[in-house]
Design a protein around this nucleic acid. Structure first.
Lengths: 337, 337
DNA sequence: TATTAGCAGTCAAAGAAAAGGAGTGCTAAA
DNA sequence: TTTAGCACTCCTTTTCTTTGACTGCTAATA
């Protein structure tokens, strides 16, 4: 069914009313609250048609209507108006996303900020596809080495290795050479694995020292592919979770990761991607929407920030916020160059 | 009132039953379940006396009894038996507290592990009282400096500063000297403040470079005095929070910090400290207990790990776990020396 | 033909009443 | 000193009743 103007206005009204009130919306409410120049009876007839075409649902026969996933989708694609962020939110964003620190820190700031502004949980998944350029080893003192790891895109990480025995200067030089020949070109992500297999095979002589370094690398890189969830407790404010078991299930689902992560991973989006309710292939997520933003630092380090929410949410504000933040992040990252 | 043996056993039974069942305990339950060789009537009389002396409370006239704060205190001080940790828990501890990384990481691992084993929220507050020994500056490339901060107790932190302009080798040397004369002996905690005030007064020449370094230090040290809460959502499993508003309030209380932090700060304990319910001076905490463990790395870096819970909790297991972990941490830290 | 007023019907939610049951305190007897 | 027994209390659960928001349909109206 092609929706005529009146039906569009009715659908938009139902979505917007339900998003704020969380109560099924009746024909009278719409006639009264959204100045439509038709009686509740007319609106009622249209709502019935909207239901028959799958845009609206009725929890029970004598209740008002709520939007279906299809209804939200139509709203998002055709009816939703973009929104100006409030000064409050803009200030909050500017204060909390300072851009100091490495990309990982920046992305974590972003995830935290978004979850605060939208009062929804966010999930941040990160991936480092950078490649090792070279390694320098500095002897800080007799028993302390500083291993500096430089990657092709200019990122610098370092590891402090406290040795059990002293190490002569020559060895440090040789070690440095050996590491570079063996590891140059390795994806940062795989550094630990490659190094630890190389130790046992070829670099046995220095295995003592190298094991320390290896542990350090493992630890230093542990943040590179991690998944962080923020503000899970924000769901307690939503009527969807008035039943505490629902809240527990939801939090379990987000904590055990797999389900949500594979879904998130599949969301294709250049900019902001939206998956609504039953559009999710994962049945567990059929009542939830995921709105995600791709973050790229242009240097092989990427992240995906996802807002996870019951499908009743202010899509317009969510999208506007993510877009605004995306610009902000791009700005910050381009200044670094 | 001095408690005779039977009363002690009854009190212990009430505490232990209530801790697991979360239901007020009646005289019959105790007579049946804990092989006391007395009838429910006798136990009933004793329970009445225990209530009159303030060890037990009765939610309403025809309900069983629950322990009061005074009752828990008597139990903890006089009746509780120390507990062997299960192999499961011991394995979990050994796997998750690996001890790699700096003290901050170690303490965070500890806090996370404890909260998982006890299924309770934990709060970790950290403090670094270490003092700056010296600063080294290495030129990694034309525009990149690596600033290495060594403190008196052997901790090493470093900061990468990406400059806007190139810097000659001489300047790096001079800068290094200046920083050392100005900052030696400064508490690590105050490094940022001292440096930023020094920049504007005395080191104007290098202010550009120094500001970069300063920001880096601020960021690197930001973890030193931080407060981390873990596993807040674990409260959703407890019947105390079946009412979702209680859960919200509790989480708000823990998130807004102040209240809880000042209480935690005041807990005096060499080893494990316990504050039960109304013993808390803070009225908001009257229904909660805080069990905390002091963590020290012996190098000026200290932490306090606190389990925060409704006062209904397995004190014995909690204390045993904390003590076991305390030993584990001491072991790990002593190996580092 | 499109819209609307009016009305009977539905059902969730809230409230009131009744039934059930766990546990007590007290008394009198062992 | 301990216990059996009983009347009493009051929370919890269940059942029943009432209320009210909202619908779909029909007949009247523009």
């Amino acid at each position: 069914m092609k929706l005529d103007d009146r039906k569009k206005r009715i659908l938009a009204s139902v979505v917007e009313d339900y998003v704020t009130s969380a109560e099924p919306v009746g024909s009278k409410t719409i006639a009264d609250r959204y100045n439509l120049e038709y009686s509740s009876a007319t609106i009622r007839n249209d709502m019935k048609l909207l239901e028959e075409s799958g845009y609206l649902e009725q929890p029970h026969v004598s209740s008002g209507r709520i939007p279906s996933s299809k209804g939200y989708r139509y709203y998002v694609d055709n009816l939703m108006q973009s929104q100006q962020l409030s000064m409050l939110d803009i200030n909050y964003i500017n204060n909390s996303i300072t851009g100091y620190g490495n990309t990982e820190d920046l992305f974590e700031q972003v995830a935290d900020t978004v979850s605060k502004i939208l009062n929804r949980p966010t999930i941040l998944t990160m991936k480092n596809e950078d490649i090792l350029e070279s390694i320098k080893i500095l002897k800080i003192s007799d028993k302390i080495l500083l291993v500096i790891i430089m990657s092709e895109n200019g990122t610098i990480k370092d590891v402090v290795a406290k040795l059990t025995d002293t190490i002569p200067d020559d060895s440090v030089k040789e070690l440095s050479k050996l590491l570079n020949t063996n590891l140059q070109g390795t994806p940062i992500e795989k550094l630990y694995n490659v190094l630890s297999s190389v130790i046992s095979k070829e670099l046995k002589l220095y295995s003592n020292v190298l094991e320390k370094i290896c542990e350090g690398i493992k630890h230093e890189m542990s943040g590179d592919n991690k998944i962080v969830s923020n503000n899970l407790e924000s769901i307690l404010d939503m009527p969807e979770f008035a039943n505490i078991d629902k809240a527990k299930n939801f939090i379990n689902m987000l904590s055990t990761k797999n389900a949500v992560d594979t879904v998130i991973d599949k969301i294709e989006n250049n900019d902001v991607g939206i998956v609504i309710g039953s559009e999710n292939l994962e049945i567990m997520l059929k009542d939830y929407s995921i709105i995600s933003l791709n973050l790229e630092n242009g240097d092989g380090y990427s992240g995906k920030l996802s807002v996870v929410s019951p499908k009743r949410l202010d899509y317009s504000k969510t999208v506007s916020t993510l877009k605004y933040i995306n610009e902000k992040v791009k700005n910050i990252l381009s200044k670094d160059k």
